[in-house]
Design a protein around this nucleic acid. Structure first.
Lengths: 198, 198
DNA sequence: TCAAAACGATAACATTTGTTAATAAGTCAC
DNA sequence: GTGACTTATTAACAAATGTTATCGTTTTGA
């Protein structure tokens, strides 16, 4: 059971539906009794993990809104958003111990539960079946990025905005437009135009 | 050792450098002594796995050139190319047993070694340490898609073409231009223009 | 070998997005 | 509250790409 928990802890980021999110939250509640964590309240626009730093924590979002981003040619690009009930880490950095290519920061003031890598590792060592855990985690993350990838290359920015509006209206309503634009791969000006032409 | 082999069998797709490819090929040679396979010679434009079908094979490319693609709004979009010495499967379908979102087909006439899922599973069952194997496989695939994803959202089509020309000139030389265009996310007409203006 | 198909270049025009700038409304911190 | 900053809209123009079509050339497959 803990195996699934951990898979969810690290996997349930990305745009997931209500059912999946509730399921993941249940799992994460149990997990919080197994691995120690520290609660942390932060304001908006606080950088939790700067690009270039090695990730040593997983952030569970009690309340608030986070985003994963990077800067290329002076442009700020948003990769994903994360909401309450989800868990976030710069996964490649977290597992490799390499500097993160992406930054993680708050969009809104947030309350987080911070799990340290050392504590997670200690837990995994006590549970040898964690081999399956890691596989599930890595696999789910792969699927997540795969779908993000496909959505970017399949559709025009305009179509992607419309799909987002249909499927995740709460995202569109809540996320500042210039972040949404960088997530859609366009400029804020262009997003404003798309919105205005119906 | 077999663990790493299998990881490579499934991971060494994507644009990898010469060193990595040689290493992977060595691994795959050993692997061919462990898991039964069938050799298959096919012409160009042969669909090995149609979109919608469940993947039950991994294709090792003895010679030739394959591509992974899907059709959206009547447009044919190339996700990745695969060359000799690489192994290919529609990974999500292969592991989930779900219908594949993508098709796999030959670009050039190719000679393939076909490993059946049942044979791979039988091998994994005989080697309980395969837990690590699957993790490595899934993780590597994730990194692969992650970087494909980042390259798509970071750079303009023109910049991506130039980078491809610098890093993988053999790809540009060998792959028909209209496939390259769909890989870069543009029309053949637009690629032709980019090439002509320098 | 030869007809059909595939491929790539080019042109003309439409559409979309980027860029820069001005403006107005909203928010935050003091 | 108030001034500074942030955010979103709109306009005008530039740049890039899409769309459609034509035209040689090459390749393919029978």
């Amino acid at each position: 059971m803990q195996i699934i928990n951990y898979a969810y802890l690290c996997c349930c980021n990305g745009n997931i539906n209500q059912k999946k999110r509730r399921s993941a939250q249940k799992m994460l509640q149990k997990l919080q009794q197994l691995i120690p964590f520290e609660e942390r309240a932060v304001g908006r626009r606080v950088v939790l993990l700067p690009a270039g730093k090695v990730a040593d924590s997983v952030f569970y979002i009690q309340s608030g809104l986070l985003r994963e981003s990077f800067v290329e040619d002076g442009k700020d690009i948003t990769v994903q958003f994360f909401f309450e009930g989800q868990a976030v880490a710069s996964i490649e950095s977290f597992w490799n111990g390499k500097p993160s290519e992406v930054a993680i920061e708050t969009v809104e003031p947030s309350v987080l539960k911070v799990f340290k890598k050392a504590d997670i590792q200690a837990y995994l060592e006590q549970h040898p079946e964690s081999g399956i855990t890691i596989a599930q985690f890595a696999y789910s993350r792969m699927i997540n990025y795969y779908h993000l990838f496909l959505s970017r290359i399949k559709d025009s920015p305009e179509k992607r905005y419309k799909l987002l509006l249909e499927e995740y209206p709460e995202m569109v309503a809540r996320i500042p437009q210039h972040y949404l634009a960088s997530y859609l791969g366009i400029t804020p000006v262009s997003l404003s135009r798309i919105r205005s032409r119906k």
